[in-house]
Design a protein around this nucleic acid. Structure first.
Length: 297
DNA sequence: CGTCTTTGACCCGCGC
DNA sequence: GCGCGGGTCAAAGACG
């Protein structure tokens, strides 16, 4: 419950549908609002200014095995007993034990989830990973369908839901579930920045926060402070030098430092369009997200 | 030919 | 217990 009350969006009437989603997700503070150019959006019914910066979607799993099993505050809903196991293991286990040869016989294992809003005409924004659409459903009280995507990596069970807000069709609500256990397939970071596709940064940054490698997830367990603003192209030297597309308020706090500590293993751009000679692929988004100084704690 | 999307059917959880 | 809505499966088709 800590910090949930600080979240200004969840109760925003303008995002009624989204609130429902967040309620469904079980968390109220795991949302970032980003527009197509990676800027944080104020609530649709803004109080005048973004006085209270939105927390990052660092809705990450709590401790591996139930230290925060109360589930109330653990919006990440890691109520699944296999919180410490790889998502694949838990999902497959559930699948095998419950499928019994029938369709849809899988019990949905709860994975840490978070959602964020992106103001974009494109439903499915690039985030550095490859996704396969496996379903689409009409959403009640919404003229827009909800699409279901799964990471194409066979070992990765991360899922993503994409839908448009019925209140504001220009807003895409993306919900990630699970954590990537692999590197990005393609992440045209340099090209994207050059082309002005800064939303890719935003998306990837959000995805990064949403789905860090599982070995690092426990680092978030001590989430004692109020959520911070999503580190979208933080005021890092790298960000400001390589891409000035994103100038967002950044509340650097404990969590972001934790993010930084995860950077070593964070998926970064691969071959596709980012010459390794010019882009420090090992850094990936880290340089865009966290000041180097911060990484030293 | 491999990959991805579409789409209808199915199952599960939950509220009434 | 029943119905509804959400989530997933898997076959078929489209596409490069």
């Amino acid at each position: 419950m800590a910090g949930a009350g600080d979240w200004p969006f969840a109760a925003d009437e303008a995002y009624a549908d989204s609130s429902a989603i967040f309620a469904e997700l079980g968390w109220a503070n795991g949302l970032a609002v980003v527009d197509a150019v990676g800027e944080l959006l104020p609530p649709l019914d803004p109080p005048g200014e973004l006085a209270t910066p939105p927390p990052p979607p660092l809705d990450l799993p709590e401790t591996p095995a139930g230290s925060s099993a109360d589930g109330a505050a653990s919006s990440c809903s890691t109520d699944d007993a296999d919180g410490g196991k790889p998502a694949a293991a838990s999902t497959e286990a559930a699948s095998k034990s419950l499928t019994s040869g029938k369709k849809g016989g899988k019990k949905r294992a709860r994975q840490p989830r978070f959602a964020f809003m992106t103001k974009s005409e494109i439903d499915h924004l690039e985030d550095g990973y490859r996704w396969r659409k496996y379903g689409q459903k009409a959403v009640k009280n919404s003229p827009f369908p909800r699409s279901y995507y799964r990471c194409t990596n066979s070992k990765c069970t991360v899922k993503k839901r994409v839908e448009r807000s019925s209140d504001d069709p220009s807003v895409v609500i993306t919900t990630y579930e699970g954590q990537h256990s692999h590197h990005t397939v393609t992440f045209p970071r340099a090209a994207a920045a050059a082309a002005g596709f800064s939303h890719i940064h935003a998306m990837a940054a959000l995805a990064a926060a949403a789905a860090p490698f599982s070995p690092h997830q426990q680092l978030y367990s001590n989430q004692l402070q109020p959520p911070a603003t999503m580190p979208l192209a933080a005021t890092t030297p790298a960000a400001s030098s390589s891409s000035s597309l994103l100038q967002l308020p950044l509340h650097c706090n404990h969590e972001l430092q934790v993010v930084a500590s995860c950077g070593g293993g964070y998926p970064s751009s691969s071959s596709s369009s980012s010459p390794a000679s010019t882009v420090p692929v090992d850094r990936g988004l880290l340089d865009d997200m966290v000041p180097r100084a911060m990484r030293h704690g």
